[in-house]
Amino acid sequence: MNPRRRRQLGIQKGDIDMTKFTKGIDRRTTLKGMGLAAAGALLPASLATPASAQAAGRVVVGTWGGDYARLLNKNIEEPFLKSKGFEVVQDQASDAPRRAKMVAERRLPRGTTDIQGLSAAQMFEMNAAGLAEPIDYSKLKNAGNIIPIAKYPYGIGHIISGKVVVYNPKLVTPAPTSYKDAFDPKYGNKLGFIDIQYQYVMLAAGLAAAGDMTALEKGKELLLAAKRGGARIYPTNEAFAQALKTEEISIGLMWKARAVQWQNAGITVDSVAPVEGTMAYISGFMIPKNAPNKAGAYAYMDAMLEKSAQEAFAVDMGYAPTVTNAVVAADLMKRIGFTEEENKKMKDLDYAFLAKNDAAMKEWWDKVFKA
């Protein structure tokens, strides 16, 4: 560049002459670059800068749909997360495809969800597959309130209920007291089982027969005796409920929380915690190892453990809280919870045993018991 032109542009001696670096770049190339920059500016932030969208507080929650998803939004997301600027996105699907997606994404440095809602057995399964982030309880201000049975190295229980004996008090007298009563052939075709709950039915039979959930062979004897007596098998929880409503059956096994929901719907049904000890049902959340926003996942876990969130789920869904500081009205707690003595006898499942034996259990159930 000549000295006169340098003076016009205000370029001092010793400054870098950028024209040397742009020589050869024609007008078409320059305009093309400007066009790309403009197009990038028009892209949604989630597409233009995916990493920054996550870092800004976007939390993707894998969960079942229906009432549970609605109540997560009502009792957790709106009051505790969205109000603080988090963007919460629910990835709704049944647990099987969500677990399959986690397995498919295992080699990715960043998965598509930050936190996953699963049963305790399914959380165990994902941890055994190497997909769960170990929980750092020091990151949770509400960690000290969690009841021991809901506290896992790889996940946290959000709601808890138990497998109880349900019965129609008009048709079953005296009232049952044990799991063994729920397999008694004397009830004939008034006794019902639920197909999709084969695992829990077989474990309950083991407890009834030998005081041990793993005593599958002893439990099978009880089941076959009930079958010979005329016991019915229903495909789903809803079909079982309908049979109770019409009095086609009068006794069986179900989660206490679901029995409360049926009572609220006008079905004549009571429940009893079995003397053998109630098998726990725990549903909660885990963090995938490759979750993009782990800080957001911890914020979600802390929100679900908030006293008022837990109390709201007890009212709305009939599940007992998993934190000790939640206060539930005595009449409601009597319906959804368990006495101090019953809580002491509550039994968490042996998830390692269940994972190892599930295939054989399903095969026997389908080919022998249902045949």
Results as ranks from 00 to 15, higher is better:
residue 9 L to Y: 01
residue 48 A to Y: 13
residue 66 G to K: 08
residue 335 R to I: 04
residue 87 E to A: 09
residue 253 L to I: 13
residue 272 V to W: 09
residue 78 E to F: 04
residue 227 K to L: 06
residue 331 D to S: 14
residue 86 F to L: 06
residue 77 E to L: 03
residue 344 K to T: 08
residue 319 Y to C: 10
residue 227 K to E: 04
residue 66 G to A: 03
residue 268 T to N: 10
residue 335 R to Q: 14
residue 169 P to F: 01
residue 256 K to P: 04
residue 87 E to L: 15
residue 290 N to E: 04
residue 296 G to C: 00
residue 76 I to L: 14
residue 290 N to T: 09
residue 359 A to F: 13
residue 309 A to Q: 06
residue 171 L to A: 12
residue 281 Y to F: 11
residue 313 F to I: 10
residue 210 A to V: 08
residue 313 F to G: 04
residue 89 V to N: 05
residue 132 A to G: 10
residue 128 A to L: 12
residue 297 A to K: 04
residue 21 F to D: 05
residue 270 D to Y: 14
residue 312 A to W: 06
residue 212 D to V: 15
residue 139 K to A: 07
residue 33 G to Y: 10
residue 339 T to I: 09
residue 166 V to E: 07
residue 334 K to C: 07
residue 258 R to V: 15
residue 171 L to H: 10
residue 346 M to L: 11
residue 116 Q to R: 02
residue 335 R to Y: 00
residue 177 T to E: 15
residue 351 Y to F: 12
residue 91 D to Q: 13
residue 155 G to W: 01
residue 89 V to L: 14
residue 39 A to W: 10
residue 160 I to D: 08
residue 8 Q to I: 15
residue 117 G to L: 12
residue 326 A to P: 04
residue 206 G to W: 00
residue 251 I to R: 03
residue 270 D to G: 01
residue 328 V to E: 00
residue 194 I to A: 07
residue 226 A to D: 03
residue 305 L to E: 01
residue 84 K to D: 08
residue 190 K to Q: 10
residue 87 E to F: 09
residue 355 A to R: 13
residue 124 F to M: 02
residue 143 A to R: 08
residue 263 Q to E: 15
residue 225 A to P: 05
residue 55 A to Q: 14
residue 231 A to C: 08
residue 302 D to H: 01
residue 217 E to P: 05
residue 237 N to R: 07
residue 43 L to T: 00
residue 156 I to A: 07
residue 7 R to N: 07
residue 259 A to P: 11
residue 266 G to I: 13
residue 82 K to T: 14
residue 68 Y to N: 06
residue 172 V to G: 03
residue 201 V to Q: 05
residue 241 A to M: 09
residue 104 A to V: 03
residue 297 A to F: 01
residue 211 G to L: 12
residue 220 K to W: 15
residue 346 M to A: 15
residue 25 I to K: 12
residue 332 L to P: 00
residue 248 E to T: 15
residue 164 V to G: 02
residue 246 T to W: 07
residue 344 K to P: 01
residue 187 Y to Q: 02
residue 322 T to E: 12
residue 136 D to G: 07
residue 347 K to M: 13
residue 351 Y to L: 12
residue 100 A to C: 04
residue 216 L to D: 08
residue 296 G to N: 10
residue 321 P to I: 02
residue 175 A to W: 05
residue 44 P to Q: 10
residue 98 R to Y: 00
residue 51 A to Q: 14
residue 323 V to T: 14
residue 268 T to F: 07
residue 119 S to N: 06
residue 163 K to C: 04
residue 286 M to L: 14
residue 253 L to Y: 11
residue 9 L to T: 02
